[in-house]
Write a protein that binds this DNA or RNA. Structure first.
Lengths: 226, 226
DNA sequence: CTACTGACAACTGTCAACAGTTTGCCGTAG
DNA sequence: CTACGGCAAACTGTTGACAGTTGTCAGTAG
């Protein structure tokens, strides 16, 4: 067991397992597979036109992303989140993302920050047309913000948390009013970032995410007030 | 596709995939499978006495934990970490763990904090005997500290980061002197926690982890000074 | 009417074989 | 001697079938 060699460069090739992963993730996040629903391997593999092997691999990865929960010998279920779990996820996200923005304020090259600004401009101009995007906290802004920290493991962790949050608040989809507010808050965060004010950006980001959480919680409780 | 039901309670049953996961994780963390080494599915499945199916599932999970890297059609490799990646991991860990300790200072019940203290006493008394534990930052203390935050996703994230760090610094195993220092630093952190001084505990924790990182980096550079 | 028992059906876990891709080797041409 | 091309071995991706477990539902005893 000493077969020395170095990992090759990544040469992406399509694989059924990989494709199924993306399809299933989409089905979960857009509600085709509802929370608490059980995934039947036979039915799903037939629906996707593949065998159970690759499907099981895809499901496995979904479990590691926290989108489904697998119980040995009893099947896998789309995760459903309580209000408490949603709060926990947001708290984690706040810790990660405020740290990311502090790093970005210190180390991010000016150009990348400017790109974020022009991205916001595009979002705003397309806003009048499409009325609103499907999701107020457009993941793009936050994902790009995270990447400015230039810390791959941090980005990875935030991606996972982001996906779970998106699933947890799937029902509270579009909220036109909040989308407008969110854009303004994004601009404030960016302004602090341009000024290289890490603490200020972190503070604005935290309040932004906190109000986003409160909004989600309100919708959640309105849906099931028990 | 609307099969309603609720997720059952967890009823752990042994499964080849699950067992293989733990075996393989152990082999990677203790160096039996060296960094950059390729995992041959056929050889491994024969060595473990199982077929490739469950083995592939176990490998899949290792990949999601960040311990191996899978390249489609080219095999999976035990991850090896550069100094930069190790720093990134520590930075992420610091962000997560300082946040955890702040939460702990605010919300953790007194009893759980006291348990941490008696655990440190045991560690110290067993220290003269075994001379030193295999790993200076004994994962137990940090893992328990994380759990005090009472935020499962946060604990999960820290577990993953901890495993990767442990792999990254696998070579720099025992360091008796540092183990002694680490224990003292743990006591300081705990003292701040007892005083419910979240900021103080966070600061002490950060410097503790920073010196741990510097120690690891020094060992790493000594091993391969290129 | 309720609680237990046993068999059946459905589903997940596992296996062995097949198929497609990658990689290394060998021969040939320049 | 070096560069290119094609063949073959090795390995990963995929499949369909088998095995063991779980959950359900009659049927029966209390």
């Amino acid at each position: 067991m000493s077969e020395q060699s170095r990992p090759p460069k990544l040469g992406r090739v399509a694989t059924y397992a990989g494709q199924s992963l993306e399809v299933l993730r989409g089905m979960i996040l857009d509600g085709t597979l509802a929370p608490a629903e059980r995934l039947n391997e036979v039915h799903l593999s037939q629906a996707l036109g593949i065998s159970r092997g690759p499907l099981r691999e895809a499901i496995q990865r979904l479990a590691s992303e926290g989108l489904v929960e697998a119980v040995p010998h009893r099947g896998v279920y789309v995760r459903s989140f309580s209000a408490r779990e949603l709060s926990d996820l947001y708290e984690l996200r706040i810790a990660l993302e405020t740290h990311a923005v502090r790093l970005a304020a210190r180390y991010a090259p000016q150009q990348r920050i400017d790109e974020l600004g022009s991205m916001l401009d595009e979002t705003e101009s397309s806003m009048g047309v499409h009325a609103t995007s499907a999701y107020p906290e457009d993941p793009d802004f936050h994902a790009r913000l995270a990447r400015l920290a230039a810390n791959p493991p941090l980005v990875e962790a935030l991606t996972d948390v982001g996906r779970r949050i998106r699933l947890a608040r799937a029902r509270s989809a579009h909220q036109p009013r909040r989308a407008r507010t969110a854009l303004d808050e994004h601009r404030e965060i960016l302004a602090a970032l341009v000024a290289r004010d890490g603490e200020g950006a972190a503070a604005k980001l935290e309040s932004h995410l906190t109000s986003s959480l409160n909004n989600a919680l309100a919708v959640l409780r309105a849906a099931e007030p028990d």
